[in-house]
Write a protein that binds this DNA or RNA. Structure first.
Lengths: 346, 346
DNA sequence: CTGAAAGCGCTTACAG
DNA sequence: CTGAAAGCGCTTACAG
């Protein structure tokens, strides 16, 4: 593979000059620029990014450590992050933690060893040692979706509180009173927040959230299934189950179907995170939608700002309720929906 | 950030010795090994992978350029690739081509600039210039899922022919005769093969595949929607539509629903590529499942074999039909299914 | 077993 | 505007 020396020889110039035209340095003669361009063309030369990175101490690469690529929410987040990064001249390397702190640590370590310029992370737990170390070491970093309290890093996320309130209002208007939640891991902010928001919203209607109606999940389908089975086994099962993410909702659907029961007739279901498939599930699932694309974009912008020495401001975007038919809404247009709720078109 | 020199100073040894213990070189005294290990520990030293790569001319990184991350099939493939690569001591950088040849080229160029050790690609079209160049330049490479005829690179893929035959047998047994297909891009092997296999299978029953029953899609949901609308507009619409991937099936579902029609009563639907959501769509979708995990694993193994100078054998794995209810199967157990078909449990 | 030195492919003051 | 030279952080013959 041709190196910069070959180009220099071919162009009859020094490597310094070649490097200058490659990097668009202004003080190069028109003639030199032309000769180098031609030599590059002839040789099919491509600069070695590894050597360049070593020399300049920047890789133009961002690391993205997400909790679970198979979760459509994170897949879309990753896509949006890559898109925005590319627009800003960065590549991104994705690390999939699979909701496992040890894997998360493996990825941040690997990414740091590769000297990425900045790190975007959606922490799987309270913070694995490697991640905390990175934050302390001053690696430019921003949290997306989930974050770690007490760690001084900008946070780009969606606030679901209002949407959860809307959801509870919606369920209450439908006549439901026994509401349960499949929670995410307590070690994650989103895991805690969604339960808290749900509990508060219930309280506003004088409703309780008893312990038996809080099932501990881990944001994966299997846990949604197990928790739902537990709810179904209760002497007094809940009327509606709110899954704190889309994968656990899938698991809940599995569990209900496995018993030969149906949604929403036997039990209602709502989910945090909206995905295209929810339109076509049986029944279509009422869900809370986050502005994923915007989150990805904002996260990259905040990180690049940090990399360039800026403050990297935190951003919080609202989520919104999308009403469909999994909570006993009946035919669209017939159910009474609370005022701030937007109804989705089928 | 501490460098190898700092470690050497701290340990009272030369950088050469430090490097040796870091790389597990045998000829190092026990004492030196201990002193280095301790110094590394004290300093929290981590080797700079960029410098190491420049020196050794290997990055221990694989590139994976896939057609569309948002397609659950490819998401799972990417996950499986990363898993196997990690087990073999490699990282993987994913490039999402989004079914766009220009983006595909951007990613292979970037990946090559970064001097990845090998490239896994599922080509978006007949082969973008950059990709062909990489193959010619001798970059260790393996095609996954899709491949380019005439390019001498191992191919790891699934053969859907038998499963498509099973599908057609299944549909025929159900009494369907007017069968249509939403094809993938003719520039892709999978796009062509699935149409060919479908046509051949029909021929075995003396059935034709008229041009009006071949809709040109691009493996994305929008095209599935458009093509299905076209089918629905026909004087004599097909009885069953076979979507060549899961995203186009999603689009087909959208189109049918938008007309206020239902699957399978008004029109049947089958899809290539099975995904967890197909169990919960309305109705559950009859689909052809590829052994995705195995494909990912096999692809990585073939690539690593090539990197290490081996031949990197091609691998072809069978796909299988999963019968559900979107083709008018009626209640499970009632429909007559052809012999080689495995029936899925709900 | 250990160290001094060369070199991987670039970029960038420094001097001219 | 151009080139010679140093140096980024490592690894690895080579010599001892």
């Amino acid at each position: 593979m041709a190196g910069i020396k070959d180009v220099a020889a071919e162009a009859g110039l020094s490597v310094a000059t070649v490097s200058r035209v490659l990097n668009g340095h202004p003080s190069v003669s028109e003639d030199a620029r032309r000769r180098v361009t031609e030599a590059v063309e002839r040789l099919g030369y491509r600069p070695n990014a590894v050597a360049r990175s070593l020399r300049t101490d920047q890789t133009r690469t961002l690391g993205l450590v997400i909790s679970d690529v198979m979760n459509p929410y994170f897949t879309e987040l990753a896509r949006s992050v890559e898109e925005e990064a590319r627009a800003l001249g960065y590549s991104v390397i994705i690390g999939n933690a699979d909701e496992r702190p040890d894997l998360q640590d493996h990825h941040v370590t690997t990414l740091l060893d590769r000297r990425i310029d900045g790190l975007l992370v959606s922490p799987t737990d309270g913070g694995s040692p490697g991640m905390l170390g990175a934050a302390r070491a001053g690696t430019p970093m921003v949290f997306v979706d989930r974050w770690i309290p007490g760690v001084d890093v900008p946070v780009v996320r969606s606030d679901g509180r209002a949407a959860v309130r809307d959801l509870v209002a919606h369920l209450h208007a439908l006549g439901h009173r026994r509401l349960a939640i499949i929670a995410g891991p307590a070690a994650t902010t989103t895991g805690r927040e969604r339960v808290d928001a749900f509990r508060e919203a219930l309280a506003a209607y004088g409703l309780e959230l008893p312990d038996v109606y809080i099932g501990q999940g881990d944001f994966q389908a299997g846990s949604g299934r197990r928790v739902t089975e537990g709810f179904l086994d209760l002497a007094q099962p809940p009327e509606v189950v709110f899954a704190a993410d889309n994968l656990m909702a899938l698991g809940a659907l599995d569990a209900v179907r496995a018993r030969g029961l149906g949604v929403p007739d036997d039990i209602g279901l709502a989910a945090f995170d909206d995905i295209p498939w929810f339109v076509h599930t049986d029944p279509p699932v009422t869900a809370i939608a986050q502005p994923v694309r915007d989150l990805g974009r904002a996260a990259v912008r905040a990180l690049v700002d940090r990399i360039e020495g800026g403050p990297g401001a935190s951003v919080t975007l609202p989520a919104r309720l999308v009403v469909r038919r999994s909570c006993g809404e009946g035919e669209p247009g017939i159910a009474i929906s609370p005022s701030p709720v937007r109804r989705s078109t089928p």
